[in-house]
């Protein structure tokens, strides 16, 4: 029994050889491959106002960090180069300097206070879910999402639509591999959409990077978050809290559409419900 477990776990030796071959080929191909690929070095562009604020905050902090790094690592590498024994440098036996110790305690405090202001402002905005235009409840299941439009009475499940063969490597992977679902969430552009999260079984988290939303879904309780999309388009995210074996296979897809298209979609969904009854 145990033997079988191990065998299935490692998926047989076929996979292993295939994998080893891949590593070799991969290493050789990597360098030209990198030049061709478009790499994502930073956040993906935010589609919400608050998202832009968060990214600006991040950039600000990164610049502060770069400055501090230049000073600290500058001093460190200067000492490494200039104060080495092989360059004939004699050690100076000082071991304290009250003034400089006070300076390097107090200056960081001021820098931190300076960072705290924009951070507080962004946080207060991020958490202000009041006065929404509509509310959608997202329920995490093992392993899919359920959505209820509380105002419209629309309910559906949203499950990964990537075929198993793509995951197993039997067919070529599609463009939106692992980030495609049968029933996406549809929301109107420019409206404040409040997301209530809860879960059926274990913790999940509703995470869409470009909408700057991440909220844990907790069984038995609701939590809320919100976004207001600025542009239409399709935005993809994933469950961000370990929830069992298919944690990596319960994506979130949000279609942001125009007001009119949204109305048409709502009408379609309602007539579908009516037809079913």
């Amino acid at each position: 029994m145990i033997k079988n477990d191990i065998k299935s776990t490692f998926g047989g030796s076929m996979r292993l050889t295939a994998f080893l071959r891949l590593i070799c080929v991969g290493t050789v191909m990597l360098v030209p491959g990198l030049a061709a690929a478009e790499l994502q070095w930073n956040f993906k562009p935010a589609n919400t106002e608050i998202g832009v604020a968060v990214h600006d905050l991040h950039s600000l902090v990164m610049w502060i960090i770069v400055l501090i790094a230049i000073v600290v690592f500058g001093a460190m590498f200067y000492a490494i180069v200039k104060h080495r024994k092989s360059a004939g440098h004699q050690a100076h036996q000082f071991h304290e300097n009250t003034t400089i110790e006070i300076v390097w305690t107090v200056v960081p405090v001021f820098i931190l206070v300076g960072m705290a202001f924009p951070a507080t402002k962004a946080l207060l905005e991020l958490r202000d879910s009041s006065a929404p235009d509509m509310t959608i409840k997202a329920t995490g299941y093992q392993w899919k999402w359920g959505y209820d439009y509380l105002d419209e009475g629309i309910s559906f499940y949203s499950t990964l639509s990537t075929p198993r063969e793509q995951i197993e490597g039997d067919t070529e992977k599609g463009e939106n591999y692992l980030l495609e679902v049968d029933n996406p969430v549809v929301v109107p552009v420019g409206k404040k959409v409040r997301i209530l999260t809860t879960a059926n079984d274990v913790l999940h988290a509703w995470y869409v990077p470009e909408l700057t939303v991440k909220q844990d879904a907790i069984p038995g309780f609701i939590r809320d978050t919100w976004f207001r999309a600025e542009k239409t388009g399709t935005f993809r995210g994933q469950c961000a809290e370990l929830c069992g074996k298919e944690h990596g296979f319960m994506p979130i897809v949000v279609n942001v559409v125009s007001e009119d298209e949204y109305k048409i979609w709502v009408a379609e969904q309602k007539s579908r419900v009516a037809a079913r009854n």
Partner: peptide, 8 residues
């Protein structure tokens, strides 16, 4: 402005 009361 909006309060949700939810029961599980």
């Amino acid at each position: 402005h909006t309060v949700t009361l939810s029961y599980t």
